[in-house]
Design a protein around this nucleic acid. Structure first.
Length: 463
RNA sequence: GUCCCCAUCGUCUAGGGGUCUAGGACGUCGGCCUCUCACGCCGGUAACAGGGGUUCAAAUCCCCUUGGGGACGCCA
């Protein structure tokens, strides 16, 4: 039997880290088994569902590379089918009409809690054999005793007393089907065989299993992935900063790094830390999913990202780099310059944002280079400028502007004057980059080219 | 309040009764490399929440306590 999984977010907000991870695990589960991964948008709450949120979710998944099979299913378009199932349940005597008002039910809950019991509806309409009527809802006849058990893919054997559950509403007074019913009908119709979702759904699972059984359908396997916590060990929330997956894109993280990080958060494969998407697909299994919540650690994400930055083919970074440069109002950087600069910056930039910032020394024209005043004061002293003028003269006639010959030349220059390289390195650096930190001097010069290098030095001499 | 779940370095985790004086990774600290900043390399620091069992033997199994989390909607 082919394995079919799904991701079923409700479009009431952006796709956040937690949702992205459950989507990733479901995707991995399907791809590993050569099965199918479906996407369903649970937009039955018309008030809170938005088109923007739907788009944001789709964009985020696209960015992460989580491709889905088949058409996207919109739950709101399947209401007739949901109602059909409810009618079926009614016909089988597994559901009944109830005319208790929300206020009455609330009173029952308050009473139950006061008596130290679990807040529940008291099933009072169960025996009344009511028919349809305005203001009435349809409730499910939850078994009064026994237990509902299943083998959770991550938690193992799980069992809940049926008495813990109340008779859930299947159809609201306005005629609309409720969540648990809709999910069961949709998952069944879509042929979903494995449901991997967030821990916050554990309480829904037994209810849904009961529904499957009442409808006479095969029950899929379920698995509940632990939550992701913030640094304060509380549920990850807006307080902890960027939450939406697309925020991480904006911060300059590479999708593969994000994917890798998310996969390792709650899942492991021995001591391995770095995984290509392909490896993830090959190696993923629910057996190695952990069962405790994990804290989101930005530092480790940074490290992983820097690993991916370093390992990237420079050519693949040109496009993203110019995009990020555009975002800081530099839309016309020369791709050839970028291509040459990238290898120098790869080991230094943890994110694309940093890459863009660091590339500024290469894409800025000499006239616009900003000189760090402190650096100028410290290194561009009259003595060092005098020395640099002599050095510039040699640069001008250097036969070969590549790093090695340049370094040879510099060596000759300082030896002739009985100096150490240290004496001229920082002055040169400040003169050609305006900063005290940069990639290797000669590599930098090569990328800048002779003309630009000399222009910058000339300008630095005027400071 | 009721029910459910979870518990190894600061963080992510390995570990499935003896090979655990608990391994890896991030971070952190120290060193090396070095024209700066990084990268890289080497080394250090640091954990089985507590208490009871079971067993010849427990990080591993059981119970309790504590701590954390989640769920209890005519939301999804």
């Amino acid at each position: 039997m082919t394995i079919v999984t799904r991701f079923a977010p409700s479009p009431t907000g952006y796709l956040h880290i937690g949702g992205a991870r459950t989507a990733l695990f479901s995707w991995l589960l399907a791809r590993h088994a050569k099965g199918r991964f479906l996407l369903r948008i649970e937009d039955t709450d018309r008030q809170r569902s938005t088109r923007e949120a739907t788009d944001a979710i789709i964009d985020s998944m696209k960015w992460l590379g989580l491709d889905h099979d088949g058409e996207i299913v919109f739950q709101s378009q399947r209401i007739d089918r949901h109602n059909e199932a409810i009618d079926q349940l009614l016909a089988k005597g597994k559901a009944y009409w109830c005319e208790c008002t929300p206020d009455q039910v609330e009173a029952m809950r308050v009473k139950a809690r006061a008596e130290g019991r679990k807040p529940k509806y008291d099933n009072s309409c169960r025996a009344r054999n009511l028919g349809p009527g305005s203001g009435r809802v349809v409730r499910f006849k939850t078994p009064l005793d026994g237990a509902t058990s299943y083998l959770d893919m991550v938690k193992g054997p799980t069992s809940i007393e049926n008495a813990e559950m109340d008779d859930m509403i299947l159809r609201r007074a306005d005629g609309s089907p409720t969540y648990n019913l809709a999910v069961v009908v949709d998952d069944h119709d879509m042929g979903v065989t494995r449901v991997l979702r967030g821990d916050d759904h554990v309480a829904n699972t037994p209810k849904q299993i009961l529904l499957y059984q009442a409808l006479g359908w095969d029950v899929p396997e379920f698995g509940h992935v632990p939550m992701i916590l913030g640094p304060d060990k509380k549920k990850l929330s807006k307080r902890h900063g960027a939450l939406s997956v697309m925020e991480y894109e904006k911060m300059g993280y590479l999708p593969q790094a994000m994917l890798n990080y998310l996969a390792r958060l709650g899942w492991s494969h021995g001591d391995q830390e770095v995984f290509t998407p392909k490896e993830l697909v090959e190696l993923f299994d629910t057996d190695n999913l952990g069962s405790s919540a994990s804290v989101f650690d930005m530092k480790k994400l940074d490290w992983l990202n820097s690993q991916y930055m370093q390992a990237a083919d420079p050519r693949d970074l040109v496009r993203p780099l110019s995009d990020f440069l555009s975002r800081i109002d530099i839309p016309d950087a020369d791709p050839d310059v970028l291509k040459k600069a990238i290898p120098l910056l790869q080991p230094r930039a943890k994110t694309l944002v940093e890459l863009a910032e660091m590339s500024l020394i290469f894409v800025t024209k000499s006239a616009d280079i900003e000189y760090d005043p402190k650096a100028v004061e410290k290194f561009l002293t009259p003595e060092s400028v005098a020395l640099l003028r002599e050095f510039a003269a040699e640069l001008e006639k250097a036969p070969d502007f590549r790093p090695e010959p340049l370094e040879e030349m510099a060596k000759g220059f300082i030896e002739a004057r009985d100096l150490k390289f240290k004496h001229i390195a920082q002055p040169i650096r400040v003169a050609i980059t305006g900063k005290t930190a940069s990639p290797g001097l000669f590599e930098t010069m090569e990328v800048l080219g002779r003309e630009e290098t000399l222009k910058r030095m000339a300008r630095a001499f005027q400071l």
